[in-house]
Design a protein around this nucleic acid. Structure first.
Lengths: 335, 335
DNA sequence: TTGTATGCGTTATCAT
DNA sequence: ATGATAACGCATACAA
């Protein structure tokens, strides 16, 4: 391994000068600096992040907290896209990404300790139980964090606009003449709360009432739960004309039930999903859904976090709400 | 931040003794060690990975190379499962995971340099262009590596048994009476080569000939390409009775075309996929496919890599072939 | 069994 | 503009 000392010896200068040349400091002669850099290149030098971090306290490394109660974290296209785009943006800005977890090896480190252990300059938090004390401890620590789809006081967050998304979907379905709308929602999270509130509010604003039996608990990313819920809806005497699913993927379960029941989509039953994943536009008929801008969210999370890391003093926490867009498929019939 | 020195001072011992106590060395008194550990716990001590790495040369950190020409790396359930299970296993064994990439920031580091820069103890390589000189450089370096679905000479690899998988699928389809079998295959990779070779060989062994026009290039994870290929097959005068798709996800594209053409699956056309992703068993009819054991592959990759890292001397490179299992759905008709 | 001393590669302070 | 030197926190060879 080529070190600063090796280069210093070869160039007949001090290690300090080499460091300055490599890092582009101003207090070094123009041509010496250039000579040193050239030699460094010739010798195949690249820095040692570890030593640099130890000395400077900055690791150029951001942690990603991506825990997965439901085992579907990475399998969920929404989250995998967020991760992927956050990764590219971080890399573009010169940062690496390390996964943060609890219980690494036998040490009983919590998230905060793990992040400190690895000297993470900041942490991106997504797809976790935000009520977990360990998550709260991390968020309230001195480490810069960005949360996705959950807002903490005085902390930066990137939130998909679930209120607008649900509102647009309801209005669209309403404009197609539907008044009897059912909603199979995901498990209780803040995202679910917002979508449900927006669902009820928009319906109320439009003057349509929603029967209690039209609102059923399903689960995100779980076609089986959606299938069961769909079956319940079909058993009702007064069936809805349109069903909202927790997300595009879980819709598959409902789709099967509807087809089994001999109901054609959208002629006998209209449906909408949520997410706008690749799959939804591959199905026939194409699913009407609300596409969340996961790519932008991931990029923005990385951008904001690194901005915070690099300019801690003039940093103000922001809540960034990211709009998506309605994708008009062919699963909502004009009544 | 609590350091070894702080603990040493509080315990009236040397830093060396604290280090020994923390790391459970034997050359320290039983009760002093316990006392030191207790104090450390009280003081909220956790180690500093950076300093430890700098001194010991070991980072307890493995790199993951997961590049994605087709933009579908993480979106592909097969790979996201591999990543997730490799991550859990690595964590269980006390290792963290950092993504390795090219072009971090403005530095022109290649994969090898990046891995060294972060002092990775080893690297897991998946979903990349294995012909890329930068990948080859990394694999041929002194850094332990494990590759997935690609074999390098004298290096450890975890390979899904594509030969057996394809063989089982062909035999199954054959047993159902099919003789006119079409194969839409993915882009040219070593995986594709093996599947195709196995496809041809098994057909030959069974004494069935495959018309050249039955074998069409599609793309992995690309329903559109599968749709186009399917259309071509339907245009043939002598249509196949069964179509093999590159994978389960791309099958969606074919499924749509078949349905549009008024063909019922499997009554008018039989189909099989590959991968055994969650989705495949949610579709109706359930897809007949070959399920790759991605979870095991990821775990094994981490296990083997760390074994290699921790016992470099008695390490022998292995090629581990991981069998999957045929999932008999309802998309192959008995002729 | 315990402690001393040194160095891992880098950056930063302070002289020169 | 350049260099000497001390730290960052830890682990280890060696001395006691």
């Amino acid at each position: 391994m080529v070190t600063l000392a090796d280069i210093a010896k070869r160039c007949n200068v001090s290690r300090a000068s080499v460091s300055k040349a490599i890092n582009g400091h101003s207090d070094i002669g123009k041509e010496t600096a250039e000579f040193i850099r050239k030699t460094a290149r010739e010798m195949g030098y690249y820095p040692n992040a570890t030593a640099r971090t130890l000395k400077s306290g900055r690791s150029q490394n951001v942690g990603v907290l991506f825990v997965d109660k439901t085992q579907s974290g990475l399998a969920h296209e929404y989250f995998s896209k967020i991760l992927e785009s956050a990764k590219s943006m971080a890399e573009k800005l010169g940062y690496d990404i390390t996964f943060i977890s609890r219980d690494i090896g036998t040490t009983g480190m919590d998230f905060y300790e793990h992040a400190k252990y690895r000297q993470c300059d900041g942490v991106i938090i997504a797809s976790v139980d935000f009520e977990d004390p360990a998550v709260i401890k991390l968020v309230n620590s001195e480490i810069p964090t960005v949360t996705l789809d959950y807002v903490f006081n005085n902390r930066t967050s990137i939130v998909s606009d679930n209120v607008k998304g649900m509102e647009e979907l309801v209005k669209y379905v309403y404009s197609k003449g539907h008044r009897k709308i059912a909603y199979i929602h995901g498990e209780e999270t803040s995202v679910t709360q917002r979508r449900m509130a927006s669902f009820y509010k928009t319906c109320a604003d439009l003057g349509i009432g929603i029967k209690p039996e039209y609102v059923i608990r399903g689960d995100y990313h779980d076609p089986k739960a959606a299938a069961i819920a769909t079956r319940k809806l079909l058993e009702l005497n007064d069936r809805p004309t349109c069903i909202f699913y927790p997300d595009d993927f879980s819709y598959i379960g409902g789709m099967n039930i509807l087809e089994q029941a001999g109901l054609s989509i959208p002629d006998d039953m209209s449906v909408v999903g949520y997410d706008g994943i690749h799959l939804s536009q591959m199905l026939r008929p194409k699913l009407t859904t609300y596409q969340q801008d996961a790519t932008f969210m991931g990029e923005e999370a990385a951008r904001q976090l690194i901005e915070n890391i690099e300019h801690p003093t003039l940093w103000l926490p922001r809540q960034i709400t990211v709009p998506g867009k309605l994708i008009e498929g062919s699963t909502v019939k004009q009544l």
